[in-house]
Nucleic acid binder design. Structure first.
Length: 424
RNA sequence: GGAGGGAUGGCAGAGCGGUUGAAUGCACCGGUCUUGAAAACCGGCAUACCUUCGCGGGUAUCGAGGGUUCGAAUCCCUCUCCCUCCGCCA
């Protein structure tokens, strides 16, 4: 959610943001401005009437106590008469502010000035390539063939038990995932993130708080009977962990790491890139989330990105860093980096982390604030998150980049203490 | 799932339907005292919104929504959540 006062003072900036993001209908900004004016007129009128009625009621109380009932009765009648008008204004005010709130929830976040304007993924900016791509003196296999050869994942039985995109991991395949989860969490802990285990279903307020609603409603699985949503990322429960809370300024920043399964319907995204582990309906991820002071959020974004990249360096996976253009950013982000690893068996880049600054967008929706130590009103803080990291594509990358001529796979050194085996 | 109890400010905890946005204690912040600290004393300390250039003024909020009343934290209804006991179960 955006600051209403910004919309008042600079509505065109908001409409422009919607255009460069390609999200929503910019004309709703005008409707918001109009509604806002009408709402405030209505509230002012209502509060004036309430003030009159309050002071009259107080007077009645005094008269009644001193036994001057006859003097009170005309006041009582007048107040009773005013009541209808009062209720009318109350209803109007409520209707207007509900309408206003609904529209405000439709506005996407405004991109940061450092974000390149662009409409398609082709206009994302590659900032750098790091690490060494593997070179093979044999024909490298894609990971789905390696999974098959070693019996690491069972897609067919996953489909039988649940549906496409819900695989079983077997034996060393399962162990490798568990090793990665532990490695990621241990690294995060070392870097000062507090580990959190979270619910993996959330209620509607939480889904709205982080901006999945109304934007990503179709991407979430719903437990209709209990009105829960399966989380598409740990960002949702972790950010909402502090929903409706006010921090002391000195308590910032707060940072958390959480491993969770993630559930995504991926409606409308079938295509050639969904083979093997490339795109699943359920996958595992360790997510890093920060609650920070507004002045610090862009520094924190870089440090969060560094924390994620550090994992790729330690795993010795070649990767590139992309700065997403306005059109390829989501509804909620002000600035976003993607990290993609180069996976040798498919000879293509796979997104394994997305690192975003939401500025006050989520915090305003979720009412997560801090109280300035210099005094004054609580202010929304800034939230950030980044994958650290998403598992299946890391597994794909390890299998493809660490495969050897005889079809076996070498476990990256840093993972060996976690797997307990050196090869598959 | 069955039975009962509860929900008040950061926490604890009062609150006859009429200066109760709310006593009191703790915590916290500022000050006095002290060489310093502690103690003691004095003062401050919720959130959202409207209005004003500002000082200030006003409105709403005692789990949520609705109702009764001139007036509701206080009475009535509905819902949500929490706790205790029983049942079931990891």
């Amino acid at each position: 959610m955006l600051d209403l006062s910004l919309i008042r003072t600079n509505p065109s900036a908001v409409a422009d943001a919607m255009r460069v993001k390609g999200i929503g209908d910019p004309s709703i900004v005008d409707r918001i401005v109009d509604l806002d004016v009408r709402q405030r007129e209505c509230v002012t009128q209502l509060q004036q009437l309430q003030a009159e009625s309050n002071s009259s009621a107080k007077k009645i109380g005094e008269l009644m106590r001193s036994g001057r009932r006859d003097e009170a009765s005309p006041l009582i009648k007048a107040n009773a008469d005013a009541k209808e008008k009062l209720q009318e204004l109350e209803a109007d005010s409520r209707t207007l502010s509900d309408e206003l709130d609904d529209l405000l929830l439709e506005l996407p976040n405004i991109p940061h000035e450092s974000v390149p304007v662009g409409a398609t993924p082709e206009e994302n900016v590659t900032i750098g390539e790091f690490g060494e791509r593997p070179s093979f003196d044999f024909d490298p296999k894609p990971h789905w063939e390696l999974l098959e050869i070693h019996g690491l994942v069972d897609f067919a039985r996953g489909s039988k038990v649940t549906g496409a995109g819900f695989p079983f991991y077997i034996g060393k395949g399962a162990s490798l995932q568990r090793a990665l989860i532990n490695f990621f969490l241990d690294e995060a802990g070392r870097k000062g993130y507090t580990e959190l285990q979270t619910p993996i279903v959330v209620n509607e307020d939480s889904a709205r708080g982080t901006g999945q609603l109304p934007d990503k409603e179709d991407q979430m699985y719903v437990v209709a009977r209990d009105e829960f949503f399966l989380i598409p990322t740990a960002e949702v429960p972790v950010t909402n962990f502090h929903r409706e809370e006010i921090f002391a300024e000195a308590d910032l920043p707060k940072q958390y790491a959480a491993y969770t399964p993630c559930f995504r319907r991926e409606a409308g995204s079938y295509g050639s890139d969904v083979r093997g582990l490339n795109r699943l309906h359920q996958f595992d991820k360790v997510e890093l989330v920060k609650f920070v002071h507004p002045d610090a959020s862009y520094d924190e974004l870089e440090s969060l990105r560094e924390d994620a990249e550090d994992l790729l360096r330690k795993l010795k996976l070649p990767y590139r860093r992309l700065l997403m253009c306005t059109g390829d950013m989501g509804f909620t982000q002000a600035k976003k980096y993607d990290l993609e690893i180069f996976s040798g068996g498919q000879n293509r880049w796979l997104e394994v982390s997305s690192i975003s600054n939401f500025e006050a967008f989520q915090a305003r929706r979720s009412r997560i604030r801090f109280k300035p130590s210099a005094g004054g009103q609580p202010r929304p803080l800034h939230t950030l998150n980044g994958s650290g990291l998403a598992l299946p594509r890391i597994v794909a990358g390890i299998l493809e980049n660490y495969q050897t001529a005889d079809g076996s796979i070498t476990i990256p050194d840093v993972l060996v203490p976690y797997t307990g085996f050196v090869s598959i």
